[in-house]
Amino acid sequence: MIEASRILVALKDPDQVEELTALACMLAQAGKGKEIHALHVIQIPRSLPLETELTAEIDAGEAMLARAQTVAEERFNLEIRTELLQAREAAPAILEEAKEKGVALIILGYNRRWRFGDRLLNATTLEYVVRHASCQVLLSVSPTKGA
């Protein structure tokens, strides 16, 4: 039984923004009056200072978060809080954010249509979050292409 007082949705793939946000909103509505946080982490290569502003990545991240807000407002009449973070690695950043916000549930996505390299990297992130999270983790897997 998921008791989601606060939900954190970690967004990475633009194709999954709607699906993950909707999932968070449905869970929140089922639990009534819950708080949703949407997060996108920009991973900065180690060859650059952490505060480097990569405009293309920032634009893409902001677009995803804005889309999540629109979905929550228009389809579920809910407000969600958004956060754009810069980190070396996504997984520890997601966990720290979850801890800081006192989150009870983290929602993550996995897209089977990702390329091999992306699948490998994201599997590492997912595994780290699942292994180290001190709250519940919900993994939403996108269907394969013709499914």
Partner: peptide, 14 residues
Amino acid sequence: PAPAFVEEAGGHGR
């Protein structure tokens, strides 16, 4: 300013 600097230095990547 950081964004301007990155524009000059790198431009948009995607």
